[in-house]
Nucleic acid binder design. Sequence first.
RNA 1: GCGCCUGUAGCUCAAUUGGAUAGAGCAUCAGACUACGGAUCUGAGGGUUGGGGGUUCGAAUCCCUCCAGGCGCACCA
Length: 550
Amino acid sequence: MKEYLRSKILEALGRSNLAAASPIVFEKPKTESHGDLSTNFALLAAKELRMKPRELAERIVDLLEIDSSILEQPQVAGPGFINFKFSDKYYLSSIKEVFEKGVEYGKSSTGGGKKTQVEFVSANPTGPLTVGHGRNAVFGDTVANLLQWTGHEVTREYYFNNAGRQMRVLGDSVRLRYKEIIGDPIDFPEDHYQGGYIRDIAQHIYDDRGGSLVDEPAEGLFKERAEKDIFEDIKQTLLRLGIKFDVYFNENSLYETGKIKEVIGALETAGLTYDKEGAKWFKATAVGGDQDKVIVKSTGEPTYRLPDIAYHIEKFRRGFELVIDIFGADHIATYPDVLLALKSLGYDTGRVKVLIHQFVTVLQNGEVVKMSTRKANFITLDELTDWVGVDAVRFFFLMRSIGTHLNFDVDLAKKQSEENPVFYLQYAYARIASIIRFADSEGINVDGLLVNGKSNFDVSLLKEKEEIELAKKLGGFPESVEAAAATFEPHRIINYLQEVAETFHRFYHVHRVVIPDRGLAEARLALCAAAKTVLSNGFMILGISAPEKM
RNA sequence: GCGCCUGUAGCUCAAUUGGAUAGAGCAUCAGACUACGGAUCUGAGGGUUGGGGGUUCGAAUCCCUCCAGGCGCACCA
């Protein structure tokens, strides 16, 4: 449609011997009365053509020759916008499209099969996932869904580290709790993991092996068991929320395969390192960074930067054309170094998209709960899911843009479980399902409206304002998916679906579907079924359920 | 002290990325079906977009400055 209008405007300009370099762009006006598409071309080109914007706009409109069966007469408005309104016929045609495409409606191939990796969660197995991880997990999974819907070949990946100091401390925490169980006196350090789950793991070990492991080192069996149990727990938590990963990438493998050494070598070859005070530094300032960074400590152990760089090189090597990293605001300072190093080694960092979400502040009993995995003062993602349910958890994390500091009032979420915004959408869905059942009992079967993949009803019978509006809204779904995917903003889908539900409820309130006029009844039933499909497809992207009954 | 994020209606957030009269949901108030699900619908009030400058046809959006909150600023990850 945009292309069509663009060519028509160029034709009109040609007829009046006007030529302008200003681009002709269209956008959807905010206010309904301004039509469906609008261009500010006259405003942009006015200066260039030495005309008043409004005059130019009127001149263009006079010279436009457009197909009146799909568009109404264009209008000049405001300072010089040209507004186009589609015809009812055009809106209504989307019902057929929804019907014929079904579960495919809204999908596109704009991604062109681009090999894409979405890395998210990536929490080390030192404890259960918290509410904070929840935002990361749900957001990442949904972005991956959006990319799949827009034709990307998506790999969901979880990066983790089961070596290093944190894991040693974890193993030792379990060891100490184990000793406690068998009655040995212990002195539990403050920097160890305080959570009750440590005791559970120790207890399991004791149940399996008895007291025979008193002299076992922390790094062996204790650490391994802790890692295994915790990872199982994490996977279970994610699975409950419908999240599954394709790849779990172990940081340690980068050492085993020599990738870490390769990176050091590459940076050295590029002349971007130097030794100082026994440590090896990355000369970030030489390539635009604000300060140099340590990459190998004086103990000989690399800092986190090195494996991060090596990991990203692996991502490139594995052929990903688009790499998406999702993490919390606490990592905001770390990624520039990594990208800088990659860039200076000749990699195209334009392919890497870093999405940073702000923290979730949890309110409980009216107070902010300070979260710390080590201090065991946290609400787990599992607990949250127990309280408010899978759909509400996903929905709440998705309904806000990731740039906002999300307030999750647990008490409110629990209390509100009946007034949850997610129910508004699901209610609309269930209501349509109910109408379809009712229509069937009255002898109008929705399956009969689609014959051999072709729609079998007459949309031109739909003439009411509410019918047209709903059809129009449904037609906007593919565009909405595109926009959400392009900006990596799932909350757009929620906003859109809310409008669909609202428009449907309004229609439902005024017009009856199952009526004696068979043709009109079928057309309206088709409209309802189309709305149901759009809601259902949207729910699929968001990962929430579509209840036939509530 | 420096860097990044945020500040929009009483509360939680949108705003098609620089567009037209800044919009939704809760909450408040006033209304609506004798038939398909009232977990619905219609309407009302509520704003100096944190403050102040600037850029231009046009700013919540971009620039400067100040104020407030968050997150970072390790040879922790």
